[in-house]
Design a protein around this nucleic acid. Structure first.
Lengths: 215, 215
DNA sequence: TCGTGGCTTTACCAAATGGTAAAAAACACG
DNA sequence: CGTGTTTTTTACCATTTGGTAAAGCCACGA
């Protein structure tokens, strides 16, 4: 029988990545974000990603196992930070300001990271074939936890009572709209700067209106 | 020189389509709706569409000039009816009820035609490469007209004053969310029937809250 | 019954695409 | 330096994909 594990408990024999590896992996992920967020998984090609990353196609495969691996790595890296604004929802803070703060953070993310927003949108619209596990394991628990928190605030009379799940999804719908449907928004409201200002104000108005408890 | 047009003024020599043509074109468009709404333009294949339509690939090409032509035909056919709910917004009706009626119609469309909603969403998210002209020529004028109508209502004190453009886009964002992000919604709110009921109620609450003029 | 014209299938094809093999180049380091 | 390792390139390959050519099928009127 084989020697009973004398080595230190190294599960996967992965060495720590070199500087070049780190740099090139980043370049690939960024290029993949460009391409996948514009064409979806099936519509994206390795050649496009390779060109956007400024390297050859076989070189991509050297760093990632294949197209699918790149996509998965991208989604994994993204899922964590994408949920951060929701995680920050603080049970100790002022309820109304906490939620308005969350709304502002999401609007800010939509403006600063539209590619990420679109990548998620496309993945979900297409049935989340590569992200369903993440939705179940990462998003769902956080969603339930924060919904319970909000429900508590409502029961305490700090917020107008309503369905917390619908409230949170409404926040997502409104804040992501401006990143995902940017093309349409630009046609209808050509002045981009004014558009964002108006959007921020309008969204804030909405949630202030439906959350302020009736005195 | 060629005979100076004696025939009746027929621009394109298209005969009226036969029954078979009508039936098969419909089958193709419906199949294409399935495939394009799930994979986007680049990600969809003619083979997929052909199989979904129950006919051979060359047969598709017999009815449409190619992949792009199918997609364009699909978008054209859709654009018209998709804007109908907004067209019905009636200047003569009660302002609040008119807008709430519009919201209800859009929610109903999201539930009944999720494929259509997703097709549009994907097209827009990907930069509307084949729909920008329609947005400019069809959507924009209608949008401007209805925004002016709503602004008039606000000036007359019938609705709480706010940015009409942002209002309309908020309606779109909220109503489409439940069709486009259906996969996510299902994970977070497993009971579909209850989800739709709650969504309808919540969306109605939102717009009633921000539109009711302070009296 | 025989055409005739609209419809469908079979057999292809060239380009694109995901991926591989192996040599060449660049690098790390004693 | 020289040598072993990491990184990159070149040359391919099998499959998929959008599309074509041409023959076959089928209903229907003369």
């Amino acid at each position: 029988m084989p020697a009973p594990s004398e080595k230190p408990p190294e599960k996967t024999p992965e060495k720590k990545p070199s500087r070049i590896q780190i740099r090139n992996r980043k370049k690939i992920i960024d290029a993949a974000l460009d391409v996948f967020s514009q064409h979806g998984f099936r519509g994206a090609t390795l050649d496009q990603i390779a060109e956007a990353a400024g390297m050859s196609k076989p070189n991509l495969i050297y760093y990632f196992d294949g197209k699918e691996a790149i996509h998965v790595a991208l989604l994994n890296a993204l899922m964590t930070e994408w949920l951060d604004p929701l995680r920050e929802l603080d049970a100790e803070g002022d309820p109304l300001e906490e939620i308005l703060g969350y709304v502002r953070r999401k609007m800010e993310m939509s403006r600063q990271f539209p590619r990420e927003s679109r990548l998620f949108a496309i993945e979900i619209i297409q049935g989340a074939p590569r992200m369903l596990p993440h939705l179940e394991s990462d998003l769902k628990p956080l969603f339930d936890e924060k919904c319970a928190l909000i429900a508590g605030w409502m029961n305490a009379g700090k917020l107008a009572p309503q369905d917390p799940q619908q409230l949170v999804m409404s926040i997502w719908a409104l804040t992501q709209h401006f990143a995902d449907f940017d093309t349409q928004v630009r046609v209808l409201v050509p002045d981009e700067t004014a558009g964002w200002k108006a959007a921020n104000a309008h969204v804030e108005t909405i949630f202030r209106a439906i959350l302020t408890p009736k005195g």
